[in-house]
Design a protein around this nucleic acid. Structure first.
Lengths: 202, 202, 202, 202
DNA sequence: AATGAATGAGACTTCATTCAT
DNA sequence: GATGAATGAAGTCTCATTCAT
């Protein structure tokens, strides 16, 4: 009942939520939104399904907050800021970005978020605020990669043509891979990245 | 009571089945197996859901027969035989294959079948006979493209390396695109094909 | 278009109805009312299910008319009148009744009607007019057998006790047998009848 | 959190299952397998149909487990062992068996199980494991009564003839009664038993 | 007259959500 | 806080009935 208690409780509560959100991201990413049962999230988080409702209003709310949390952790922007400090060409930066973004361990969840966003593209019956979240999240990739594409074209590293269109196609392909084969990046990452880069490298 | 009568009826029945299978392929491709409701197939075919059961035993049977029918129409093999008659390099043949396979109108359904097969890869709880059908169908692409990849490598048109792995990655990317953006090939097909080809062109 | 034609048509129609009713009685008797599908009746009558609706309003109507027709053919009363002409004791008449009633060929349908009536006892959700028909039909057996039971008791052939109760139990057992094992009477009829008679024989 | 807690929960769960199985046995017995709706079981158990699925996988599983449970409670064998300790003639034992088996109160469910087994004889489209259960259960009656029939014939209490056939007919009649009139044994049990016994008593 | 194509109510089952403990 | 018991909407499939041919 001491004031400290309240804080501790609050923190514990937050930890629980994180435990659930981490599980949710994984399960949503693996199965898609509709096919993910509350059951599966609870099992992945090693709690009872009833408890999920103690921390979240609904399945939809779990999705929303998990995405929010995942994007925050995702920190694409920060990743780029980090990259920009290094002395690399535009193409090398793009390559580095892919290596970092998709070859993550347990912590990042970048891939999970990316994959969920793909699943969501094909779920037209979701509420607006979720679609907005997606929209916003998708933008991050565009906003950070577009300048690099432009830079690459100027320096002659990247093929000519409409940079925006090229970027969109590039992202479509990345999305597609993640939707198609979640384990794609697990093996031979470097080789695969280099092949993909060939598409845009002059 | 003329002999023509029976034939006509039989043909009409077959047309109805085709109407349903065409609808089913589209809806399955767009939504995945589990998320496709009989309702959706029926609505797409502009009939009542009850009627679907007049022509097919179950949802699973609709899937199976539709795939079978779609693959038959698909005729990847025939397409290649046609190609091989022409005087083209391996890379040009691969390019032609993509142009023909993915830029079809309403008739071909090649893309739908391709996408469903992708969905099915991630549905481990389907009966054996469907998985066999998929397996078999997937093989067609490999069996027809693999020799071309080899040929391309020998002639120096295609980059060095493990041809099988390269082909698998190539197919994963194609699958991913179709899963991700069904309308991908509608516009700018030629340019998109050329970009993709860059991945493997030496 | 001649007047004769009308009659012939009328007769043909009646024959068709009989064909259906005969089939219906058999299928209803074997499967019970609810579990009998229109399909099964049609197949048994070797016609399409649609045609049944040409001759009858509904499944319920098929049941009603079939029962009516079956009871008419059944002619328990006539059977007894026949028996009464012979010089037999009451017990021998009861025995004869059973032999005739249950060991019939294709024509009689006595057993079918009897069995359907049993099924109907346990179908409380049927319309009134059908229940009335049943009621009425059940009475025939009681009305014709009751005097024989009385007579048998007076002559000392049948055991003492409440004749009505004894008869009711006897009929329950007969009904039960037909519900339980439709083919019961096919074999060893005489021996089985004699065993059953032992229950009431003094 | 006391150790008792888990046990209590487990016990409560078991009680719920028993509540459902008791209801199921009654409803199955009254209506037959196919005509029994999950709804009816739920209503009889005074719960929602959804809850039934919390405790059982499917309707079929409800049937299977209910039968198993009912047979266990049934304990025909134990009943006979009890009887055999007493100094009774074979016929008297058969009589006692019937009195005990069919004049039970709420607890026994012997009659329900017996009736369901009859219904099942006429349901050829049930899975094997259920048929095996039935088979096995049916055997109990035969295995326990057959020796008594033989014994009775040797001592001259029971009429001559093929004991097996006689027993089969006897059981058919019992089954039939239970199928036909579930309340048959409620009243006048002793008298009814004595009449039935007359069939086989020398 | 005859067929069987077409429809939709109802039954089984799944699963998100609420609630008692 | 934590569990899982309880409910009911929605999806798959069956089948009586209507209707076009």
């Amino acid at each position: 009942m001491s004031p400290m208690n309240t804080d501790q409780l609050e923190q514990k509560k937050q930890e629980r939520k994180v435990q659930i959100m981490r599980a949710a991201l994984k399960v949503f990413a693996d199965n898609g939104i509709k096919l993910t049962k509350m059951n599966m999230i609870a099992k992945e988080a090693k709690i009872s399904y009833g408890l999920v409702y103690h921390y979240f209003e609904s399945k939809e709310q779990v999705l929303y907050e998990s995405l929010e949390w995942g994007m925050e952790r995702n920190k694409t922007k920060e990743m780029f800021d980090e990259l920009n400090k290094k002395q690399l060409s535009a193409l090398e930066k793009i390559k580095s970005f892919m290596m970092v973004a998709f070859k993550e361990g347990d912590t990042g969840r970048t891939g999970d978020v990316f994959r969920i966003i793909q699943h969501l593209h094909s779920s037209p019956d979701l509420p607006t605020h979720i679609h907005e979240l997606i929209e916003q999240s998708g933008k991050v990739y565009i906003e950070t990669l577009y300048p690099l594409f432009m830079e690459g074209q100027e320096s002659g590293e990247i093929i000519e043509g409409n940079a925006e269109e090229l970027l969109r196609m590039y992202l479509t392909i990345l999305s597609g891979i993640m939707a198609e084969d979640p384990l794609f990046w697990k093996e031979n990452t470097e080789w695969k990245v280099s092949i993909l880069i060939r598409m845009i490298a002059a």
